[in-house]
């Protein structure tokens, strides 16, 4: 099955002007704060740029190696427990802010990724492996362990509830979502 690519169009055509206007207003009332906010935003951008590059390379690699049917087999409606565990692990090891992962998830969703699994991915991201030592240092071992365990269970429960509340269209025989 061939899919035609959607025509190129910029996203966030309204959000960016609104944010620019907010900066403009802040520059008018408090230039010092506006300048500081701009510096902080630039720092965030510099920090997440390597992550975005990795996500682009990874998305391209997935598109190159996997056909939509294969993505659907791993992460589609009939992926079973394997799909849940894949995204749970992916959520835990993923790095950077949530929005850096939107393009990859949107791409995979177009290839058959279930909405419930996206929810699992987003919530499992609450476990930050590089930050675990710091969490243990601040809150102790028991707190970190118990919280991490509940996060994993909670992520799966949310994915399951979302799929119950928002079931996708029935899979057609031979479709990507099969």
């Amino acid at each position: 099955m061939k899919r035609s690519d959607p025509p190129f169009a910029f996203r966030g055509k309204y959000l960016l002007p609104v944010v620019c206007a907010a900066y403009g207003a802040l520059f008018f009332f408090s230039p010092k704060k506006a300048w500081l906010a701009l510096q902080k935003s630039a720092a965030v951008l510099v920090r997440i740029l390597p992550i975005i590059v990795v996500v682009i390379l990874f998305t391209a690699l997935l598109n190159y190696l996997l056909k939509p049917r294969q993505v659907a087999a791993y992460l589609g409606r009939k992926s079973g427990i394997r799909g849940w565990l894949w995204v749970l692990a992916a959520g835990v090891i993923s790095h950077g802010p949530m929005y850096a992962w939107y393009p990859l998830l949107e791409d995979l969703r177009g290839h058959g990724l279930r909405d419930g699994l996206i929810v699992v991915f987003f919530f499992a991201r609450a476990i930050k492996i590089p930050l675990l030592p710091m969490m243990i240092d601040y809150f102790g071992w028991p707190f970190t362990l118990v919280l991490s365990l509940y996060i994993l269970i909670g992520a799966l429960a949310q994915g399951w509830i979302l799929e119950a509340l928002m079931p996708g269209p029935p899979a057609k025989p031979g479709s990507y979502a099969d």
Partner: peptide, 17 residues
């Protein structure tokens, strides 16, 4: 990703604010 750049920049701008 380029198509999504204004969206991501908007969110990053909000984070700074």
């Amino acid at each position: 990703f380029w198509a999504m750049a204004p969206l991501l920049l908007g969110v990053i701008g909000l984070v700074g604010l």
